[in-house]
């Protein structure tokens, strides 16, 4: 179902913003003019992605430095965590992460809409 989120101008380029839509926390952002929308919950350990940053096309989670592609939802980079001294011995299961939950997003008549299930 499509929901009105905000005005186009509320999401400047290379930024993201958290919205609560129908009790769901949805992160909406814009990178190089292109919009994305996803569940705000990091699929690794549940941190709020809104607390993170944008690194190029990636959403960087501040909790464990996991980075997800904002447009494909795929986990693409965990290099920052690898700098930690004990990283290589972590169990594979602990390191494992699902992909981001993405939502269709569109701009129309100066507004942004997100399609939620």
């Amino acid at each position: 179902m499509q929901h009105w989120v905000c005005r186009q101008s509320d999401i400047p380029d290379n930024s993201m913003k958290l919205f609560n839509i129908n009790k769901a926390d949805v992160l909406v952002g814009r990178i190089s003019g292109r919009l994305f929308a996803c569940d705000n919950v990091c699929p690794h350990r549940g941190a709020s992605l809104a607390m993170g940053e944008l690194h190029g096309n990636n959403i960087y989670c501040y909790m464990h430095a996991y980075e997800y592609d904002a447009f494909s939802g795929k986990l693409v980079n965990i290099d920052s965590l690898k700098q930690q001294s004990n990283w290589r011995r972590q169990s594979e299961e602990w390191k494992r992460s699902d992909d981001l939950t993405l939502y269709p997003v569109l701009e129309q008549d100066g507004s942004i809409y997100v399609d939620l299930p």
Binding site: R45, M63, H64, L81, Q84, S85, N86, W87, R89, Q90, S91, E93, W94
Partner: peptide
Amino acid sequence: FADQAGCPDAFLP
């Protein structure tokens, strides 16, 4: 339980 802990294991370096 350990595999879903919120922080990585603090192994002896």
